[in-house]
Amino acid sequence: MPRQGLSRHELDAIRGLAEICERHDGIKLKLNWSMLESRPAGETNDLLVYERGRLVGFCGIYAFLSTEAELSGMVHPDYRRRGVFTQLAAKAAQLCRERGMQRLIYICPRNSEAGQSFLQRQNLPYRDSEYAMELSNASAVPLSAASLPSGVTLRQGGKDDLNQLAELNRVGFGMSQEEATSLAAATLTPLEIPYLAERDGQAVGKLNVLFNDSAGLAFVFGFAVKPEERGRGIGRAMLSGVIERIRKERGLARFGLEVAATNERALGLYESCGFRTVSVIDYYTQQLN
């Protein structure tokens, strides 16, 4: 059942199914709840399968770029090996092709036997892995009083900063101009706030925060510092400063983020700020053209 936007009843059913799967498999699914709770009308991003009025399968499409989408989902333990997720994935691929996307990225917890088995049967190539990290009680973690370098200030950004955010995406993540702009535009939503570090009015670094108020969680992503500005303490000061600001302004004490498994420098930074690894997420790619 393709859905354009999710009702409260459907969100509750998805949450219930996730709890069953996580408890049965001993895993933590990545379902991007903030996005599920604010799906745009007029665009199909979620696929649901019911059996006798019971939700038994779900697949969500998460598009951050115009060229690709991420997929995450699950099937009730009692309904596996019946082709349920195979059908969901095929329908998701069809929808993404119709939107002109070039590839799908499958999200799978490393310790999910069901997910890993599905991906092996599909013979999809492994792309990379990330550590999912969490700072579970920020109010109890004594962040260092790291200060921004002289002349650098930290402020909240917005739609007027689209060009600067896009440029930081381009130089920070090696994206094309089109992808960098698409990502910057996609992350300017009511639930997301960009923060910019600036020198003389020019952005030298940024990070985004996605708020999941129902879970009491702030998710940090899109962390980038211009190459020529790295190694000066800007990244650590930005992260510490944003955490402190959110703690004071919104009363949130839980923060999450993801970091590439190969990025030892960033991993060390996050650990020094109190973040701890809670799971490992593997990504697999399917080309659509």
Score class of each variant (00 low, 15 high):
E264M: 07
P227D: 09
L188G: 07
Y283C: 07
E22W: 09
L135V: 04
R276P: 11
Q286G: 08
T181S: 10
Y195G: 00
L71E: 10
C96R: 09
F275H: 06
G201M: 05
G235N: 07
M1C: 13
L239R: 00
Y195L: 07
V280M: 13
I20S: 02
G73C: 12
F223W: 01
S136A: 13
C59D: 00
Q122T: 03
F275V: 10
A63V: 10
G231R: 13
G115R: 06
V56W: 02
S139R: 15
G42C: 09
A166V: 03
P125D: 10
S129M: 11
G268V: 02
L210S: 09
F223Q: 05
E113W: 06
N263P: 12
D213Q: 15
E70M: 15
L135F: 03
I107Q: 08
W33T: 01
A114S: 08
K30V: 15
Q116C: 12
N123L: 08
D128N: 13
A89K: 06
G235T: 01
A140P: 00
D161T: 12
L104R: 01
E179Y: 08
Y126N: 13
R121M: 00
K248R: 01
A215I: 00
D282S: 15
E43W: 08
L36R: 15
L191Y: 08
K159G: 10
S272I: 05
A90L: 09
L11W: 07
L267P: 15
K159Y: 06
V209N: 01
I281N: 10
N45E: 09
N163M: 12
L154M: 02
M175P: 00
R250K: 14
G157V: 03
G53P: 11
R199F: 04
Y79W: 14
L183D: 14
C108V: 10
N163E: 14
I14W: 02
R254N: 15
D213W: 08
R254L: 11
M175S: 11
L196P: 15
R170Q: 06
L148T: 01
F221A: 12
R52V: 10
L257K: 02
L188I: 04
R82W: 09
P109A: 14
F64T: 03
L267S: 14
Q164G: 01
H76M: 06
H9S: 15
A185C: 09
L188F: 11
P2F: 05
A18Y: 02
E167P: 06
L119T: 07
